[in-house]
Amino acid sequence: MTVLIGDFGRGSMKKQTGAGRAPNIRDVAARAGVSHQTVSRVLNGSDRIRESTRQSVLDAIKATGYRPNSAARALVTRRSGLIGVLSTHQNAHYGPQTMQIAMERTARQAGYQLVLVSTSGERGAVDSAIERLLALDVEALIVLAPRTEVYRALAGVEARVPVLALDSSRREGASNVAVDQFLGSRLATRHLIDLGHKEIVHVGGPQDWIEAEERMQGYLFELGEAELEVTPPILGELSADFGYLAGRDLLRGRRFTGIVAINDQVAIGLLHAFREAGADVPARISVVGFDDIPEAAHIPPGLTTVRQDFVAVGERVVEAALAEIVSGAPSGAILLEPTLEVRGSTAPPTDAGWWASRPLS
């Protein structure tokens, strides 16, 4: 047994390991008073190590500043410690960013790292992104890309590694974690109906976006339950600019008192258009958003919206991925319930006919 005596701070360790040389596994073994094979067993999670020995090795790792070589560990354990994330979100939206941060933190706490590949939704680009992730020997693949074309491309991947999707569709045999989008839209629509609104319009999202379809179906379900007339939804982008244009278009030709918007950004654009035209919210028009972005409570008059717990989604999907890596069994659908945050943008309807056909200046 080799015993080292003295203060092994950062400067002392450099002298012991050689100037400019990073500490290695033998330095850790010497510090802990064990063999380098014992250090290796601790790093690889062996359950045949006494707890006192394990703690001595961990203390030595901390003292020396040793960083295990992940590539070398992968050769020994046949595990990469990587979880791939495929995203088609090209812009910095609150929801996807919040989920990614929660996913990274949860994976890191479990000893894993995330590898993020962002791509467009075209089939060729998605295929290429998947192959890049699989070439890194990721142990699971999380899909932050709720578009129908992406799931067609994933059809041949599911047998190779666990694949988990961040969407609320109920595909047979799929593993997914999400807030229930259908239920969220039902909550928004039912809120307007309960206030007395009978002419409710849906301003939706892109047609190939799975969550947009789920939200539109929730809106249609509640109107059907209430036996209210359905008007054609306005479908488009997920931006405030689109909401503003949709709001101007609505004011030119439709009679309505309530709007269920696809997300908060679109709702913000709608509020801008209505404010500009003098159509007061909520005295003349009620607007409900979706997501509960941090700004929603501060936009006058305060946006009523469906709240999604993006942090919980990010945590749960990584936990489900880790469980599938160990068990090999699909986790199935994990749907979290949304909540409705009622603020100042909704109220009982009044006669809005005075502005319904009024041309914009």
Rank of each mutant, 00 (worst) to 15 (best):
E122F: 10
G121Q: 12
E227G: 10
E319K: 15
L251F: 01
L245E: 15
G344W: 03
H272K: 15
A178W: 06
Y112L: 14
S239E: 00
R248D: 08
T189M: 12
R171D: 15
A102F: 01
P301Q: 11
H191D: 10
V313W: 01
L251R: 05
F256H: 04
M103K: 01
G81I: 08
D208M: 13
R31W: 09
F290W: 08
K15I: 14
G302V: 02
R255H: 13
G278R: 11
L43A: 10
T98Q: 06
V311E: 09
G173P: 08
A125N: 15
L251C: 05
D27A: 15
M99Y: 00
D167K: 00
L86M: 03
D194S: 12
Q90N: 09
E51T: 12
V318S: 03
A347W: 00
R152L: 14
Q37S: 15
R21L: 10
H298W: 13
I262K: 05
L360V: 02
A174I: 03
G253A: 12
S345T: 00
S185P: 09
G269Q: 01
V115E: 02
V287L: 09
F242S: 02
Y66D: 10
P232F: 04
Y112W: 10
S35V: 11
A297P: 04
R73M: 13
T77W: 03
L303Q: 01
E341P: 00
N24M: 15
A159I: 07
G196I: 01
I83K: 05
D249K: 13
A296I: 05
R190V: 01
R108M: 12
S40T: 11
P162I: 08
K198Y: 00
G332P: 03
A312F: 11
S331T: 13
P68W: 01
P294I: 12
I49R: 08
V157T: 14
Q308D: 00
A279K: 00
S331W: 05
D208V: 14
G353S: 13
G84V: 05
D351I: 04
R54I: 07
T38K: 03
L303V: 00
E149Q: 15
A30T: 06
R79D: 04
A323W: 02
L183K: 14
S239I: 00
G184F: 11
R105E: 11
E104Y: 02
L251W: 02
A29T: 08
T231S: 11
G173F: 08
A352M: 03
V85F: 01
A356M: 11
P282V: 09
G302T: 03
I83F: 10
P162K: 10
L250I: 04
L228F: 11
A356E: 12
G243T: 02
D309Q: 10
